[in-house]
Design a protein around this nucleic acid. Structure first.
Length: 275
DNA sequence: CGCCCGTCCTGTCCGC
DNA sequence: TGCGGACAGGACGGGC
């Protein structure tokens, strides 16, 4: 699930539930989500600490604590951060539970455990963890966006999903943005026209703004995302049948009519004519 | 470098 | 009803 908008929601949860609160207990219900940190060290370094203001970069959530250690979360496909009262029964997928000094709890819930939580000793260590990420998708300017697409070979869908190029977009957002901009996912990123790049950047900003408000990519019927799970998915704009293909192993949906091919690429649409 | 694949995990759904 | 396999909104490392 979690792409930039979801993680932005988790940041909000952490900020409103944990901001300024002291951690009174750390319960690791499944150490399988700890990355590069032991249960013992996590408890030693975090119990007694107070949360500062959390921030987000791409799909990463960064939670500094007042004495220097920093919790660094990634949510994989199924992770979430939820705020609960201490007397609420735990969910079977609650992997790490932080009890706060007001008897509420921050719970890291994750079915698949594809990612997890790290503990950085200081900000320099955080920088190391996030070193390979591109600029955050919410912060990137039109010019930077153009440069970043120009700097990559390959299909625009792969570039949008590449966290080292641009941080925050996942499979759903990428499809949604490409559809909104009318750009086919297999177009070469560096061969897009200036107008197409502007369309993409505008679509990205709008899709992100709506999604952040909803803390998820909203599954509206008027969005491509709202049609993904249909047995016969159709374009919300023209109701034509959507095409489906894998990009980097991820299912990709697009509308061949609304997401036009580059000039000349429809040359082989009628095989047998050309030779 | 770009791209494909397997792998890390768990749960669900589909076909036999 | 049971079981194997594919697949799910992510990321990483290896190999071509």
């Amino acid at each position: 699930m979690p792409e930039l908008p979801d993680v932005e929601g988790f940041r909000e949860v952490l900020s409103s539930c944990g901001g300024g609160r002291r951690v009174t207990n750390v319960e690791v219900r499944d150490p399988g989500v700890l990355r590069g940190v032991t249960v013992r060290r996590l408890r030693n370094e975090v119990v007694g600490e107070r949360f500062g203001e959390p921030r987000r970069h791409g799909k990463w959530l960064i939670a500094p604590m007042d004495d220097g250690p920093v919790l660094v979360w990634h949510f994989g496909m199924t992770g979430a951060l939820v705020c609960a009262c201490a007397d609420e029964p735990p969910d079977p997928h609650d992997r790490v539970v932080l009890t706060l000094d007001d008897e509420r709890q921050l719970r890291y819930r994750d079915q698949r455990k594809l990612q997890g939580v790290q503990l950085a000793g200081n900000e320099a260590a955080v920088g190391h963890i996030l070193a390979d990420l591109g600029p955050d998708a919410l912060a990137v300017s039109g010019e930077d966006f153009r440069r970043l697409l120009d700097g990559r070979r390959g299909a625009v869908k792969n570039v949008l999903m590449d966290q080292s190029a641009l941080a925050g977009l996942g499979n759903l957002l990428s499809d949604e943005i490409l559809w909104r901009a009318g750009v086919a996912p297999d177009r070469a990123a560096r061969e897009l026209s200036a107008a197409e790049v502007r369309e993409l950047h505008t679509a990205m900003r709008r899709v992100l703004a709506s999604s952040v408000r909803a803390a998820r990519v909203p599954p509206r019927r008027s969005w491509l995302t709202g049609r993904r799970d249909d047995p016969d998915p159709r374009c919300p704009r023209c109701e034509g049948r959507l095409r489906s293909r894998r990009f980097s192993g991820r299912r990709t949906l697009w509308c061949p009519r609304c997401q036009s091919r580059p000039p000349g690429a429809d040359r082989d649409v009628h095989p047998g004519k050309g030779g």
